Computed example of a mutant assay.
Amino acid sequence: MFQKMGPQGWWPADSKEEIILGAILVQNTNWQNAAISLENLKMVTDFSSFQIANLSVAQLQALIRPSGFFKNKSQAIHEIFTWLLAFDVDFFKVRNYYGENLRDQLLTLHGIGPETADVLLLYVFDLPVFVADSYARRLFTQLGTPQLHNYQALKKLVNLSDFTLAEAQEFHGLIDEFGKEFLKKNTFNRSFLRDYKINLRQE
């Protein structure tokens, strides 16, 4: 995929705060809608964690309304940025404090599910994890893996222990860009991966 598509440079953002917001806002909508909400937030807060956390509920909901589910997403945004302020928005401090329990901690925050938690681990806390999102599940199914019933089923199947952080980020970006081009349009059989299959090793 890298040879055919080149570097993707994911996640497209200028700051970790913007990544957090994007990961929440894009839930259950498309990126175009999330981008409108992001632009609204940027104009008012310049993506300052302090300013975001101190927006009133009404202000925050109005700013992110274009991305839908604005009540739930506003609560998620407020909760995670309030949590980060307790650590002075020092992402290394957060990672060191929770260690191997960081993912579990993220999952306790409102509106943070397995996929969003892994996106935050990968792009905000700089840990090389696999994001088993819908494009990844569709791709691995096309490549001949067993039926993948849910997010965790694929996550257990893929081990990125030999990947660097940059490689793990690139892998996620490549899968999603491939998905937009060939899986969303149901044209996998015309893609450069059409003749590839995954051979699972039996342990």
Rank of each mutant, 00 (worst) to 15 (best):
E167C: 02
H78R: 13
D88P: 12
I52M: 09
N30S: 15
G179F: 12
I80W: 00
R138A: 14
A76W: 00
L25T: 01
W83A: 13
F69D: 02
M1P: 09
N54S: 06
S161Q: 15
Q3W: 07
V124L: 08
G113A: 15
I112W: 01
L106R: 05
K71W: 00
L200S: 01
F70H: 13
L55I: 04
L21Q: 04
I175G: 01
D118I: 01
S74H: 03
E18P: 05
N54W: 01
V44Q: 03
G22I: 04
N150C: 11
G173P: 10
K184R: 15
D14Y: 06
I20F: 12
K4M: 15
D88H: 13
Q202E: 11
Q75D: 11
F178E: 02
F178I: 08
K16L: 09
R95F: 01
L157C: 10
M5L: 14
D104Q: 13
L154P: 04
L121E: 11
G111Y: 01
Y97N: 13
N96G: 10
P7V: 13
A132S: 14
Q3Y: 14
K180G: 11
R65M: 09
M1R: 04
D195Q: 13
F163C: 09
F91P: 05
K4G: 00
T141I: 02
E177W: 09
Y151P: 10
S74P: 05
E17R: 06
Q51F: 05
R65K: 15
R65S: 07
A23F: 02
K197E: 11
L183N: 02
Q202M: 15
K156S: 14
D118V: 03
A34K: 00
Q142D: 08
L193Y: 03
G68I: 12
H149M: 09
P128Y: 05
N54G: 00
G6Q: 11
S191Q: 11
E177V: 14
N33Q: 07
S49R: 02
S191R: 04
K156H: 14
L85C: 03
E115Y: 02
P146T: 06
H110M: 03
Q61S: 02
E181N: 10
F70A: 07
K73I: 01
H149V: 14
A153T: 14
F81S: 03
L25I: 11
G68D: 03
A13G: 03
L122Y: 02
A166F: 05
L102A: 07
L122F: 08
A35Y: 05
K184Y: 09
F50A: 10
Q61L: 04
F182T: 08
W31P: 13
L139N: 00
Q51R: 15
L107K: 13
I19T: 11
R137Y: 03
P66V: 02
R190N: 14
W11Y: 14
Y97V: 10
Q152G: 09
V44C: 10
N40V: 11
A136V: 06
L102Y: 07
L84V: 07
R65E: 14
I64L: 09
A76D: 08
F192I: 09
F171T: 11
F140C: 06
F182E: 03
T164C: 08
D126W: 04
L154I: 03
F125P: 06
Q32M: 10
Y196S: 12
L102C: 07
R190S: 12
E115L: 07
Q105M: 08
G113D: 10
W31N: 08
V44F: 00
A168I: 02
L183Q: 04
